[in-house]
Design a protein around this nucleic acid. Structure first.
Lengths: 223, 223
DNA sequence: ATTCGATTTAAACGATCGTTTGATTGAATG
DNA sequence: CATTCAATCAAACGATCGTTTAAATCGAAT
């Protein structure tokens, strides 16, 4: 109420609710997870969920924001750092700025699965959240990609960007290819593959400008 | 009961339930759709849903099977036709056999959205369905792709196949890139882009055998 | 005309849902 | 010590859920 921000006395409760909600949302989805199950797992009173987060949707928003906000901050920070240099960027650099924050300084082991799940919810649930959290990141990175692929018609680039996001979501959701077991190394490898795959898909048929390094892989793999 | 299959007397009810369920599942997801809402939209009695399909899960299975089965049949038919020829196949041909049945002779306009939604449900829901409907298609196409990319380590190929499926699901779910309006032409264009994108991603760094056409794009990327 | 199985129906089952209420706690403030 | 207020609690709100029951209805075969 005062101008000084009031610290909540008991941050344990809030955080325990967030932790429990996160686990259950990932496992069963939003609609199939009850506030009672969350409260039970968090070992708090049922009414505490509404007291701290207003509603079930509010809780979902908070669960998501907690982990994705720092990742998106890091993404924008890296992109801005790249853009401050005056040379023209490479597609590889841009996608690294977009995807590597998902594993470097990973704020929480459960973030990837959480992102994968939220993006999979029906649009009525995800739309406000995605617009709030991702509007800026999506716009800025798409603009950056346009710059390195100037000859690609915009409608094709939109499709490819769309396909890239789909790969990312699916990869985050399962975290290892079907039939393989999860491990941190496996996941890291997946992010690298995601970057390679996306570079190839986005730039198909295009002359890439910028650092020729990014074509090295391309060449050295061709025997 | 007899050896002759008994035709249900009133296929109207069954089909009306399937139609209604399909629309509502796509729009709101499985958990958030009630059997009462389905029965109301289908203009049938609530108990009819359990009578004809046993349970809500049974209904979901039937909704999905109805449209995806013919598509998967067509996919396998095309792949087998390719494999009967004795020349070595191209990646492009294989992916066309995998993706073009989604638009050619499209059994139902709503299939893409339905596939996109089902694949997005929590694993506890989708796992039995996906295993039942897609096990053979996934195995056969993955094997075919291995043959045209013999030098690609299997763990990398698994990731790339995984990323490709992610692109497909996302593309089916939205049917047009964010910010663009849906049209049948737009969707067809998206399938074509999906094939191009996947060829580039899967074959990145690989020498493709078969029709050299598909390498043209690949080469012109390197300036 | 009657029988019979398949289908439809109204009604209810017990369970669970998100949210709200009003009392109670407990630590900080004066 | 008295006051205050954020936080917690048990309990209940009305609504809705998937499923089941048992009677009613219908068409075709006997």
């Amino acid at each position: 109420m005062s101008t000084k921000s009031v610290q909540p006395k008991n941050i344990d409760t809030r955080d325990r609710i967030l932790d429990a909600a996160e686990e259950l949302f990932v496992e069963h989805g939003f609609a199939a997870t009850s506030l009672r199950a969350i409260a039970t797992r968090a070992d708090v009173n049922l009414a505490a969920t509404n007291y701290h987060f207003g509603s079930k949707m509010g809780l979902l928003g908070s669960v998501f924001h907690r982990h994705i906000f720092p990742v998106n901050e890091e993404r924008l920070k890296r992109l801005k750092a790249l853009e401050r240099s005056e040379r023209s960027l490479t597609l590889n650099e841009i996608l690294e700025a977009l995807f590597l924050p998902l594993i470097e300084g990973l704020p929480h082991e459960r973030l990837p699965a959480l992102m994968g799940r939220i993006f999979s919810e029906p649009e009525s649930i995800t739309k406000p959240i995605i617009e709030k959290e991702f509007a800026e990141v999506a716009a800025r990175f798409q603009a950056a990609i346009v710059k390195v692929l100037p000859d690609l018609p915009i409608e094709i680039l939109r499709w490819r960007f769309h396909l890239m996001i789909g790969s990312m979501i699916h990869m985050l959701k399962f975290q290892s290819p079907i039939g393989s077991e999860y491990s941190r190394d496996m996941f890291t490898k997946g992010i690298e593959e995601l970057i390679n795959y996306s570079v190839a898909g986005l730039s198909r048929g295009q002359n890439l400008q910028g650092n020729p390094d990014q074509q090295v892989n391309h060449q050295e793999i061709s025997k």
